[in-house]
Design a protein around this nucleic acid. Structure first.
Lengths: 244, 244
DNA sequence: CAGTGGTCTAGACCACGCC
DNA sequence: GCGTGGTCTAGACCACTGG
């Protein structure tokens, strides 16, 4: 990092961003694993040949991106897809009562197939490429909350068919099994009518208004990894969004 | 700020947060108005008796909160409720096609009344307190997108009845007319069925699934200022949410 | 060219967790 | 008491804007 040359005119990139990229690369390549304690600021600064302040700025932006977790007095850890963190960051349906309950999941179907045009577009794969589809029902407390279909490119999840069980927290599965870190997701929400199948699985009337969430989740390199379409009952829960 | 005394044990507050609070107070009290150029870092540092780095950290967190806009080479400005910024931060419905279009608005009704229990709870006023209600239809391009009811505590908007016209961007109205800055909002989304009135105003069938957004917007002091319930058609548009 | 915010550095001290 | 991240300072230089 000493010898990084700052071009004069059009491609200036601050040192702390170069540091950040080099640290993110360690996560991508797997030399830094989720949950792991990373070296202290002072060690990183020495290793990279920059000041502690510059390392700090890189670590701070990574913390803001939820890639790291810093604990005063203990050190800096690579963020891990733990239940509580995932629940808070990526699962925005909450009971109207307010308390945050962990949802349970029940797999309805698991099948291999060929990507539809819409799926191929969302996942940036060829139309007709092999994909896995998982359909499951999630419940909050006793009553069914939503039914969702998760679509994964078969090429990214080798040996998927050998899994005997699919856990509730699939992002942790992606991480543990294939080293895939979900770093961000884009959700598009619409209101739709419950189909006969929705009604059956969710125990509501056919035609009941449901909240449909179409999520495309991406890894550290911004590549789409998962497409998920969830259809949610909203009679006792809602989607929460904080704006500022 | 020189003489701020740091208590030893339980109520430590970093200097840059004290600086931040003192600067936010200037906005609340109206000595710093939206759109205004504020003094340079170095001037603020001298005035407050702290280092430039501490002022910078305060300004950076305020920028992250969308309270300030910093422009290299020009200076730092108090964020203003301009169309484009509001559209980006607070209006999350976008056409499925993707381009961001400015919605138009048409007022349907404006009336004074007494707060229902639900309204009183959301706005933190007494049940039965005087409120203004505005109902309007918003269109995106040619077709109606949503119908919404805006509820305002009458006490916060003196002279509301003397307004001859209500602009599309009401947050700018709150700012210009009553010095109220909307700093954050909490939205709760559900799927509902179009009522006969919804259907009439939106030109859709009764019972069509609509996306219902219940928003409580708050000012710089975290006091609820506006309750807004929007019911949106989602046949050609969706609510966008970015998670990370 | 002067003034602003943006980056980078070096060093001091504080709050916290753990042994 | 030691090591960590968190705060604060002082000063240098860079990138950008506008007169």
């Amino acid at each position: 990092m000493n010898d990084a040359i700052q071009a004069k005119a059009f491609d200036f990139k601050p040192l702390y961003l170069q540091v950040k990229e080099s640290l993110v690369r360690r996560m991508i390549e797997g030399s830094w694993l989720p949950g792991q304690l990373i070296p202290s600021e002072i060690d990183l600064a020495r290793e990279l040949g920059v000041s502690q302040g510059t390392v700090r700025k890189a670590l701070d932006t990574m913390t803001a991106d939820n890639l790291l977790i810093r604990k005063q007095g203990r050190g800096t850890y690579v963020a891990a897809p733990e239940e509580s963190r995932m629940l808070f960051n990526f699962f925005r349906m909450v009971p109207d009562s307010g308390e945050r309950v962990f949802p349970a999941s029940h797999i309805v179907r698991r099948a291999r197939g060929k990507a539809t045009p819409a799926e191929a577009d969302a996942l940036a794969v060829e139309e007709g490429a092999e994909v896995w589809r998982i359909e499951r029902v999630r419940t909050l407390g006793d009553s069914p909350l939503l039914v969702e279909t998760i679509v994964l490119p078969a090429g990214r999840v080798a040996g998927f068919d050998r899994l005997t069980e699919i856990p509730n927290n699939v992002y942790r599965l992606y991480s543990d099994r294939w080293g895939i870190t979900i770093a961000s997701a884009l959700e598009r929400l619409k209101a739709v009518s419950a189909s006969a199948r929705d009604a059956e699985l969710l125990g509501c009337g056919e035609g009941t208004p449901l909240l449909e969430i179409t999520r495309v989740a991406s890894d550290l390199e911004q590549n789409a990894v998962e497409l998920r379409i969830s259809r949610c009952r909203t009679d006792a829960a809602h989607y929460r969004s904080h704006l500022k």
